[in-house]
Amino acid sequence: MPIAVGVIQTLGFPAVLASADAMVKAARVALVTFDKAERGQFFVAIRGNVAEVKTAMAAGIEAAEASFGGEVLTHYIIPNPPENLEAVMPIDYTEQSEPFRL
């Protein structure tokens, strides 16, 4: 099954929280990382089947934009990321995310 990575970057914590919540509720995806980007910007990354990631990303973007003062700065989906990308970027499954892997 082809696996994809989806990333959403927002302005403000409430928007990224709403986005993460909507993504894991909308599709069978695992939240693999979340962190601050800079100056009040946050990002969240998910992994899962390509179709599920597309569905989750649409729900996450909509939820972030609907939150009070929420703004999606950027978003991107990477279908079938190569191993060297997983080794360098914080998108691989970790010990914390492994129990929630679908």
Score class of each variant (00 low, 15 high):
47 R>G: 00
76 Y>D: 11
59 A>W: 06
21 D>N: 07
10 T>P: 15
55 T>E: 01
79 P>Y: 01
31 L>F: 03
5 V>K: 11
1 M>H: 14
95 E>P: 05
38 E>D: 09
59 A>S: 10
98 E>L: 13
35 D>N: 08
71 E>P: 13
92 D>G: 14
78 I>N: 09
38 E>V: 07
37 A>E: 12
79 P>F: 00
29 V>E: 13
75 H>Q: 12
65 E>G: 07
82 P>V: 00
66 A>R: 15
31 L>N: 09
19 S>Q: 05
86 E>I: 01
68 F>N: 15
71 E>Y: 09
38 E>M: 11
26 A>S: 15
64 A>C: 11
29 V>H: 08
54 K>V: 08
76 Y>A: 12
57 M>T: 05
6 G>D: 03
96 Q>P: 10
26 A>I: 04
20 A>D: 13
58 A>F: 05
24 V>G: 00
16 V>W: 02
32 V>A: 02
57 M>R: 04
74 T>A: 15
42 F>K: 03
58 A>I: 05
69 G>H: 06
99 P>N: 03
49 N>E: 14
62 E>R: 13
79 P>M: 01
88 V>R: 13
29 V>Q: 12
63 A>I: 11
92 D>K: 15
30 A>Y: 01
27 A>N: 10
34 F>M: 15
88 V>L: 13
85 L>K: 00
76 Y>G: 11
24 V>H: 00
57 M>A: 04
65 E>T: 07
61 I>E: 14
100 F>H: 08
36 K>W: 01
51 A>F: 02
44 V>Y: 01
65 E>H: 08
28 R>E: 12
8 I>F: 03
42 F>R: 06
37 A>F: 07
24 V>P: 04
44 V>C: 12
39 R>N: 07
